[in-house]
Amino acid sequence: MNIFRLAGDLSHLLAIILLLIKIWKTRSCAGISGKSQILFAVVYVSRYLDLVTTFISLYNTLMKLVFITSSFATLYLMYVKFKATYDHNHDSFRIEFLLLPCFVLALLINASFTPLEVLWTFSIYLEAVAILPQLFLVSKTGEAESITSHYLFALGSYRALYLLNWIYRYYAEGHYDLIAIFAGAIQTILYCDFFYLYITKVLKGKKLQLPA
């Protein structure tokens, strides 16, 4: 554990909390992509299957449980409790176009061809692109509430901080995982346009509105 890794995890945790607070306080999931949230739930479940096979640390176990539980809580709020506020019409991204290629890629490029390893790799590839339905929704509606922007910023920062963690680990421990690094770089790149808008608009007190 190094400072970048810890900051990344805390940023990830903050993102999830912000999202739950937004939905709970406003009693609405308007502007949030249910498709992205489904993909994140798939990511956590397929990645954290090792919860039942390997014990790494209490921190590791607790965080995994928090991520899985909170993603299902989010889905429950969106698809059951506040279903009426869910923006069906704008959330039209076809997630099979992400799920299938990621699965095929995981079958082809992985560290070892075992069920757990393929699913872990699948989750890494899927996480890299899971935010696309959300970014698509923001681009369709042309704007995002400020708390949704904070959520996206925290979520994007998390993998960017992991990239610093991997650079640090490469030099400090000689450890690197090309699959995670490659996917993490793609994931971070997808947020760049959003990061730019967040810094130039939201941090200056303006609403995130895309140029027409």
């Binding site: 890794r5 995890d9 990830h12 090792d50 390997t54 790494i56 640390s57 590791n60 965080m63 995994k64 991520f67 560290a111 070892s112 390893e117 872990w120 992991y162 963690n165 680990r169 421990e173 450890h175 995982d177 995670a180």
Partner: peptide, 10 residues
């Protein structure tokens, strides 16, 4: 996986 290092990450 031979290198378990990435599995302690989330």
């Amino acid at each position: 996986k031979e290198d378990e290092g990435s599995k302690d990450e989330l």
